[in-house]
Design a protein around this nucleic acid. Structure first.
Lengths: 339, 339
DNA sequence: TTGAAAGCGCTAACAC
DNA sequence: GTGTTAGCGCTTTCAA
């Protein structure tokens, strides 16, 4: 049987209170007594029972994290950041995956509530409105932090990355290299595409180089198939029209674009410049490495964890917007005049 | 304040014992009484306190999972499988990341012990021997399941994928295409490299085409940098020697090899065949798509979770070996005689 | 079919 | 500095 605090107390000839004080180091204990107790702890291999402690202290030392899926490295990288920050704290991480499903996401959060977590971090919460009511109610019961959500609910802390500025920076980067007509590659069903499209439209219109046909929608943008779909669609397009630059809404699409260029014999960046979005590890796997916009997923995760701890410990709801930054690598360069 | 079982009992005019019976449905309760209690539960938004239940029942309903990192999609895919299986059970998943570090891995497991988990699943445990003793002791205290470990410790359940046969199949695949001299690319600190190396050595020696220099070690094999490191090392090698085929121990390395070929102007698969290992999503992102060996990470994860539950519930230690299968895509083809 | 009550292991008053 | 003890919320015998 596992040793309890009572066993330690008996073995070292002191009371349980003293053992508790030694274990927690929160009250003075005479040196000699402490040593006796510590010996007994070692001898009996005593490990405090966390459930008992938490029951007594009316708290819980775990934080629930819900991610939509593991298909996209984006989420794994956010998770990594959360884990890293939580590891420094006394909290541990309970993980659940919503499988891109709104109902499932709600189920995950409910399950966390039953498990009595101290709070829940939801990464890219589902946008279906049905869930909204649920979160509104939940926020009253439990600290909640949303990562990259467009929704605004009182009492919830948010960490978002500034994709508007990011998109603008991406375009500026291409303008800087002399590109004028820029293909815009996006997908379906995500606010993040809408945000970037809006910026693209206004910036291009301002410069008088906007063409409706330059906006390409490749469908679902967060699947394994995204890369291939993008490749085929762009190969098809490039048969008739040769852009000197392409701005892709995520790195998967950019990877597809890169593959399309390779197949069409277009050199990157000599013939065509390519810029992706997110700066997932993927962007460093390609040849040439992808120029991309960093959403700092690790920071996104770390901030989410930080806001959660702040909310739990100080009761403060806070929101943070992280800057997006251009990461220049090998897939962008000066536009060369067509011969 | 959160409602407790006592509040529900008072509100519905019964004893806490009855409420407990209604909640758990493990003893007969009169229909009428049950309805009264259920009403009170709904009204008070009562959610049972898990810590209290676990303390009383002397059990814990969480399982710890340690992964080495998130840089390699391999681990995320295994994690996905574990999560999926655990979701069907009454256990939840505590996650920790060892950052490819043996000491950190041990720390993660120790932390889980403090948290009183029901068991720990270690994905690709670090091979440093220092940890071995630790696990030997831990196995006596706690259900342990290892995923893809070559170590054999009594009392631990293992899920491994048959990388021996997989490595053999990979080589056969290349032989089939007429390749004779095959570069072997591996990394450090993982049993999975040792297993494949052993097969590689014996198979090549048998055919009389073994050269010690054909074994390339690119260092740490599960980092973002792995791709780049592999690329540079191989570019360097290929300056002096032109293999017609390369067998890489994981898809990251294969990606690096592919990049090296592109930089060196070697066409894949016309000039050189490339085979990876794992069949991570990455292998479908490249152009050409990577021929690789599928380790069925989802199954690996699901099996690990299944064995863990079996060990916890029936006390049975079991080991399972999953088959590896060749997934042929575009990066391998017939060897062409040098002109 | 139900209730009373004894813990599960721990912390934190409160007493000395 | 140290011991005694009353809970934390729940399950489960044992009686009724």
């Amino acid at each position: 049987m596992k040793a309890t605090i009572i066993d330690v107390a008996k073995d070292s000839g002191v009371s349980v209170a003293t053992v508790s004080r030694v274990v927690n180091g929160n009250y003075p204990v005479r040196e000699k007594t402490r040593l006796k107790v510590e010996d007994a702890i070692k001898k009996l291999e005593y490990v405090p029972n966390l459930q008992a402690r938490e029951l007594n202290m009316q708290r819980s030392s775990s934080i629930g994290v819900v991610v939509p899926s593991f298909d996209n490295m984006f989420f794994a990288e956010v998770l990594d950041g959360i884990e890293e920050h939580l590891r420094q704290s006394s909290y541990s991480l309970l993980l659940a995956c919503a499988q891109n499903d709104a109902a499932r996401e709600e189920e995950c959060v409910r399950d966390f509530i039953t498990r009595n977590v101290s709070g829940v971090i939801v990464v890219s919460p589902n946008t279906e409105m049905a869930v909204s009511d649920f979160y509104e109610n939940t926020a009253a019961r439990l600290p909640l932090v949303f990562v990259n959500s467009a929704r605004e609910i009182a009492g919830i802390s948010y960490v978002t990355s500034d994709q508007s500025s990011g998109a603008r920076a991406a375009l500026e980067h291409l303008f800087h290299y002399g590109h004028e007509r820029i293909l815009f590659v996006q997908g379906e069903n995500s606010d993040s595409y809408r945000i970037k499209e809006k910026v693209y439209r206004s910036v291009m219109q301002e410069r008088g180089t906007f063409h409706e046909a330059d906006i390409v929608n490749i469908g679902e943008g967060n699947r394994i198939e995204t890369v291939e779909n993008t490749m085929f669609i762009l190969m098809d397009m490039m048969l008739g029209f040769a852009p000197t630059a392409i701005f892709c809404c995520n790195d998967l699409m950019a990877m597809g674009a890169l593959n399309a260029c390779q197949r069409m014999g277009r050199r990157v960046p000599q013939d065509i410049s390519l810029i992706g979005y997110d700066n997932t590890a993927l962007s460093r796997y390609t040849a040439p490495n992808l120029t991309t916009i960093d959403q700092h997923m690790g920071d996104l995760g770390r901030e989410a964890a930080r806001l959660m701890l702040k909310r739990i410990e100080d009761g403060v709801t806070e929101s943070v917007v992280l800057a997006n930054t251009v990461v220049e690598r090998g897939s962008t360069g000066f536009r060369v005049e067509e011969s």
